[in-house]
Computed example of a mutant assay.
Amino acid sequence: MARPISASHDLRRDEILNVAAACFARQSYPATSMNHIAAECGTSKARLYHYYESKEAMLFDLLDRYTQKLLVIIGQVEARAQRRALDERATLHELIRAFLHEYETSATRHAALLGSTHFLGEQQREVILDRQRDIVAAVTRFLCRAYPDRLNARNQTAVAMTLFGMINWTFTWLRPAGPLSYAAFAEEVIGLLDGGLGRVA
């Protein structure tokens, strides 16, 4: 009978992934070695291999967990919107707030998603890319429902990618201790959408 994996094993994996994400963000995925990650974790490379068979396996687990979490956030926002009887525009606004709340504490993971996915093997890369497509498709649906008079088959992809362009790269410039918080920036994004897409066509 196989020995069950303990809760501490999963917690240790989370710690390793946090360190790996920080290393990838600081010095890039190619420049980070298992030795680097082991040293940052305060352990040996041999011990690290107890949890992950390779750096690529670590990257995949990191991105797999993170993209699943983003999809969970989408589902949670939809469920809360139904419970609170929010209209479509308010639901989109809640999604933007939820994404930026997550980005605030997941900056290094988000950096890995945007900058390191192409280092995965083909099959694993497709898993992550499919999740990203699902996220984009979901956000596009939220936008189309929120602004039905402004979005159509011709412009909906461009508008969705414009929204992602506004929020996805915050890890490069937006600092929690800076003059603008993530929560305040979410309201700026919402204001820009309502001021543009929300105006009468």
Rank of each mutant, 00 (worst) to 15 (best):
F142I: 10
R199K: 14
A158T: 08
N152D: 11
S116T: 02
L62E: 01
A79L: 11
A107M: 06
E126Q: 12
G42F: 00
S8K: 13
V19I: 14
R175E: 05
E122S: 14
F142K: 06
L62V: 00
A25M: 00
Y182A: 11
L120W: 06
K45G: 04
C23A: 02
D10A: 11
S116K: 01
L11E: 15
H110D: 00
T105N: 10
T170M: 02
R175Y: 05
R13I: 03
S33C: 04
I16H: 00
K45L: 04
V189Q: 09
T32N: 00
I37A: 09
H9Q: 13
L114Y: 04
R65W: 05
D194M: 05
D87H: 15
A153F: 15
I167V: 11
W169R: 13
L95I: 07
M161L: 12
L59V: 02
P30I: 04
A38E: 11
I190L: 10
S181F: 05
I128Y: 02
R133A: 10
S44L: 01
L95Q: 12
L48W: 02
E94V: 05
I37M: 07
A158S: 10
S54D: 03
L120T: 09
R145D: 12
L174K: 01
V136W: 15
T172S: 09
L113K: 03
E56L: 04
P176T: 07
V139Y: 08
E188G: 13
D87W: 14
G121L: 03
R199T: 07
N155L: 05
V200L: 09
F24H: 00
G191E: 15
H118M: 11
E102N: 07
L113E: 04
E126N: 06
Q132M: 11
G42Q: 02
A21I: 00
W169I: 03
L71A: 07
A158I: 09
I5W: 08
N18E: 03
M161T: 08
Q82D: 12
Q27L: 01
W173N: 03
I128D: 01
R13Q: 08
H9P: 15
R26D: 01
N155T: 10
R83Y: 05
N168W: 03
V189F: 14
R131F: 04
V127Y: 08
L151Q: 06
S54Q: 03
T117H: 04
T67R: 00
A107I: 01
P4A: 09
L86G: 10
